[in-house]
């Protein structure tokens, strides 16, 4: 089967107090700490999802980025639940929350913190919210390896395992955080750019 051309339909980058969608700055809040910043993003975009408050910071960050990414981009009914999946990566796994769970062990180990001691929980949170049931995987990388992500996602799309895929990077440790998510599909919509490692890196580097 000849490989199809795939496209980045939309992108979202969150880092250093800034939220970008498709390269455009939608929000800035530089004064706040991580916790306050994530809540400020949630409020700014008028989101209403009670599960948000119980998430760890990695899930909050990835979930917020996915909400901004998918807003007006992916409509309900565009795809079947099993046609949409995720391929994500990061550097620090779930260490940000692991440290908080570790602190709870001395007293009473907290099951609500323990459940977030896995990096793929952020994928679960995004799937629950948007009802995605397709393939997914979480990889640990020292630095964002766009070439690897490109190959993985193109395999899924070219083999019709998925019709659309959210991919990219979601990483957080203490005050240092960055999310860069891409919605990739087969349609060359308005504003879509070819899905390539080069284009992903260009978007990723819009914020340091």
């Amino acid at each position: 089967m000849p490989p199809q051309i795939t496209y980045i339909t939309s992108s979202c980058v969150i880092s250093q107090g800034i939220v970008l969608k498709d390269g455009k700055q939608l929000f800035e809040n530089k004064a706040a700490d991580v916790q306050a910043f994530l809540l400020a993003v949630y409020q700014h975009f008028g989101l209403n999802y009670s599960k948000f408050y119980k998430m760890d910071n990695l899930s909050k960050l990835g979930w917020l980025a996915s909400e901004v990414l998918l807003d007006n981009t992916l409509k309900k009914g565009d795809y079947q639940p099993e046609e949409v999946g995720l391929v994500l990566a990061n550097r620090n796994s779930s260490l940000d929350n692991d440290l908080k769970y570790f602190d709870s062990i001395k007293d009473i180990p907290s099951p609500s913190l323990f459940v977030y001691t896995l990096p793929n929980i952020v994928i679960g949170e995004i799937c629950i919210r948007s009802h995605f049931k397709g393939e997914h995987a979480f990889y640990i990388q020292e630095n964002f390896d766009a070439g690897f992500i490109e190959n993985q996602v193109n395999y899924l799309l070219n083999n019709n395992i998925l019709q659309a895929c959210i991919c990219g990077w979601v990483d957080i440790l203490a005050d240092h955080y960055k999310a860069a998510l891409f919605l990739v599909g087969k349609q060359n919509n308005d504003g879509a750019i070819p899905f390539s490692a080069e284009n992903m890196n260009a978007v990723f580097n819009q914020l340091t």
């Binding site: 994928i123 397709g134 393939e135 997914h136």
Partner: peptide, 11 residues
């Protein structure tokens, strides 16, 4: 091989 998500509950 095949992989899927429940989209139901995290734990």
């Amino acid at each position: 091989g095949g992989i899927s998500n429940d989209a139901n509950h995290i734990s």
